[in-house]
Simulated scan of single mutants.
Amino acid sequence: MDYYALLNVDVSATQAEIKAAYHRALLAAHPDKNASSTTDIAALKEAYRALSSPEFKKHGPRPAQIVSLSEFTEHPEDETWDHPCRCGARYTITVSDMDTGRHLVPCSSCSEVVWVGYEVLDE
Protein backbone atom coordinates (compact mmCIF):
# COMPACT_ATOMS: atom_id res chain seq x y z
CA MET A 1 0.00 0.00 0.00
CA ASP A 2 1.34 3.45 -0.91
CA TYR A 3 0.87 5.43 2.30
CA TYR A 4 2.04 8.66 0.68
CA ALA A 5 -0.56 8.42 -2.08
CA LEU A 6 -3.27 7.45 0.40
CA LEU A 7 -2.66 10.61 2.43
CA ASN A 8 -1.85 12.63 -0.69
CA VAL A 9 1.57 13.83 0.52
CA ASP A 10 5.01 13.89 -1.05
CA VAL A 11 7.74 11.54 0.17
CA SER A 12 9.59 14.59 1.51
CA ALA A 13 6.61 15.74 3.62
CA THR A 14 7.30 16.90 7.16
CA GLN A 15 5.58 15.39 10.19
CA ALA A 16 3.32 18.47 10.37
CA GLU A 17 2.32 18.06 6.71
CA ILE A 18 1.62 14.36 7.22
CA LYS A 19 -0.54 15.10 10.25
CA ALA A 20 -2.49 17.82 8.41
CA ALA A 21 -3.01 15.53 5.41
CA TYR A 22 -4.22 12.75 7.71
CA HIS A 23 -6.81 15.04 9.31
CA ARG A 24 -7.98 16.27 5.88
CA ALA A 25 -8.32 12.68 4.66
CA LEU A 26 -10.25 11.66 7.79
CA LEU A 27 -12.68 14.53 7.35
CA ALA A 28 -13.17 13.73 3.66
CA ALA A 29 -13.79 10.05 4.43
CA HIS A 30 -16.02 10.52 7.48
CA PRO A 31 -19.52 9.09 6.84
CA ASP A 32 -21.20 12.10 8.51
CA LYS A 33 -19.38 14.47 6.15
CA ASN A 34 -19.40 12.35 2.99
CA ALA A 35 -21.89 9.50 2.88
CA SER A 36 -20.63 8.30 -0.50
CA SER A 37 -16.98 7.98 0.58
CA THR A 38 -15.40 4.60 -0.09
CA THR A 39 -12.13 5.42 1.68
CA ASP A 40 -11.17 2.90 4.35
CA ILE A 41 -10.62 4.87 7.57
CA ALA A 42 -8.57 2.00 9.02
CA ALA A 43 -6.20 2.31 6.04
CA LEU A 44 -5.85 6.05 6.70
CA LYS A 45 -4.98 5.34 10.33
CA GLU A 46 -2.44 2.71 9.28
CA ALA A 47 -0.85 5.14 6.80
CA TYR A 48 -0.60 7.88 9.41
CA ARG A 49 0.82 5.51 12.02
CA ALA A 50 3.43 4.21 9.57
CA LEU A 51 4.48 7.61 8.18
CA SER A 52 4.67 9.07 11.69
CA SER A 53 6.88 6.25 12.91
CA PRO A 54 10.54 7.18 13.41
CA GLU A 55 11.40 3.64 12.25
CA PHE A 56 9.70 4.27 8.86
CA LYS A 57 11.59 7.53 8.37
CA LYS A 58 14.87 5.88 9.35
CA HIS A 59 14.57 3.27 6.63
CA GLY A 60 12.94 5.62 4.13
CA PRO A 61 10.61 4.69 1.33
CA ARG A 62 11.07 1.44 -0.53
CA PRO A 63 12.13 2.14 -4.10
CA ALA A 64 9.78 1.05 -6.88
CA GLN A 65 12.72 -0.07 -8.98
CA ILE A 66 16.47 0.13 -9.43
CA VAL A 67 17.55 2.20 -12.42
CA SER A 68 21.10 2.61 -13.69
CA LEU A 69 22.28 6.17 -14.28
CA SER A 70 23.08 5.03 -17.84
CA GLU A 71 19.30 4.77 -18.42
CA PHE A 72 18.82 8.44 -17.48
CA THR A 73 19.04 11.27 -20.01
CA GLU A 74 21.98 13.58 -19.31
CA HIS A 75 21.55 17.37 -19.41
CA PRO A 76 25.15 18.74 -19.32
CA GLU A 77 24.03 22.37 -19.31
CA ASP A 78 22.68 22.10 -15.75
CA GLU A 79 24.49 18.92 -14.62
CA THR A 80 21.31 16.89 -14.18
CA TRP A 81 20.02 13.54 -15.40
CA ASP A 82 16.37 12.61 -15.67
CA HIS A 83 14.31 9.50 -16.29
CA PRO A 84 10.57 9.13 -17.00
CA CYS A 85 8.24 7.90 -14.28
CA ARG A 86 5.25 5.77 -15.19
CA CYS A 87 2.97 8.66 -14.11
CA GLY A 88 4.42 10.80 -16.92
CA ALA A 89 6.59 13.03 -14.72
CA ARG A 90 10.36 12.69 -14.22
CA TYR A 91 12.96 11.50 -11.73
CA THR A 92 15.86 13.97 -11.59
CA ILE A 93 19.29 13.52 -10.03
CA THR A 94 22.08 16.11 -9.92
CA VAL A 95 25.86 16.05 -9.63
CA SER A 96 25.43 17.43 -6.11
CA ASP A 97 23.13 14.52 -5.20
CA MET A 98 25.70 12.04 -6.41
CA ASP A 99 28.56 13.83 -4.64
CA THR A 100 26.69 13.35 -1.36
CA GLY A 101 25.93 9.69 -2.09
CA ARG A 102 22.20 10.10 -2.66
CA HIS A 103 20.66 7.13 -4.48
CA LEU A 104 16.94 7.38 -3.62
CA VAL A 105 15.28 9.81 -6.02
CA PRO A 106 11.57 10.72 -5.82
CA CYS A 107 9.35 11.43 -8.81
CA SER A 108 8.59 15.11 -9.31
CA SER A 109 4.86 14.40 -9.31
CA CYS A 110 3.79 11.13 -7.66
CA SER A 111 5.05 9.26 -4.60
CA GLU A 112 7.24 6.77 -6.53
CA VAL A 113 10.91 6.56 -5.61
CA VAL A 114 13.71 4.85 -7.56
CA TRP A 115 17.17 3.77 -6.47
CA VAL A 116 19.69 5.16 -8.95
CA GLY A 117 22.79 3.06 -9.48
CA TYR A 118 26.06 4.86 -10.17
CA GLU A 119 29.68 4.95 -9.06
CA VAL A 120 31.39 8.12 -7.91
CA LEU A 121 34.77 8.34 -9.60
CA ASP A 122 37.71 9.96 -7.83
CA GLU A 123 39.39 12.56 -10.01
Rank of each mutant, 00 (worst) to 15 (best):
K58A: 15
S36K: 11
Y22A: 05
S111L: 02
A29S: 02
K19Q: 14
H59P: 00
C110H: 02
A47D: 01
S36V: 10
S111F: 01
P106M: 00
A5V: 05
E119L: 09
H23V: 14
L104E: 08
A43T: 03
G88D: 04
G88C: 03
Q15V: 15
P61C: 09
R24D: 12
A21M: 10
P61W: 11
P31N: 05
S36D: 13
A5Q: 14
L44H: 04
H103L: 08
V113D: 00
E74W: 10
L6W: 06
H103E: 11
Y3D: 08
S96R: 15
D97H: 13
E55G: 08
A42R: 11
Y91K: 01
T39E: 08
R62T: 15
D40F: 03
E119Q: 11
E74S: 12
I41W: 03
S109W: 14
P76T: 01
N34E: 07
G60D: 03
Y3S: 07
I18W: 03
V9S: 04
A42M: 07
E17C: 12
L27I: 13
P63T: 01
V9D: 05
K45N: 13
A42H: 10
A16G: 08
M1G: 11
A47M: 07
T94M: 06
R62L: 12
I66D: 14
C85R: 01
T92K: 09
C87E: 04
Y3T: 06
H23E: 15
S12A: 15
R24Q: 13
A5H: 10
L69S: 05
E79Y: 09
I93Q: 06
K45F: 10
C85Y: 02
S111R: 02
A20F: 12
E119A: 09
V105R: 01
H59T: 11
I93K: 05
P63Y: 00
D82N: 07
E55F: 15
V120W: 12
Y118Q: 01
A28D: 08
H23W: 14
H75M: 07
D32I: 11
T94F: 05
Q65R: 08
N34G: 03
E46Q: 14
M1F: 14
G101Q: 03
C85I: 06
D122F: 10
P61N: 09
A5N: 13
S109M: 08
S37D: 07
E123G: 13
A25H: 02
L6A: 06
P84R: 05
C107E: 02
K45H: 14
Y22G: 04
I41G: 00
Y48I: 04
I41M: 02
Y4Q: 05
P54V: 12
A25W: 01
D10I: 06
A29E: 02
E71A: 13
P84H: 08
L44S: 01
K58T: 12
Y91A: 02
H83G: 01
Y3W: 15
D97A: 04
S37V: 10
T73E: 10
D82K: 04
L7D: 05
A20E: 15
P61H: 10
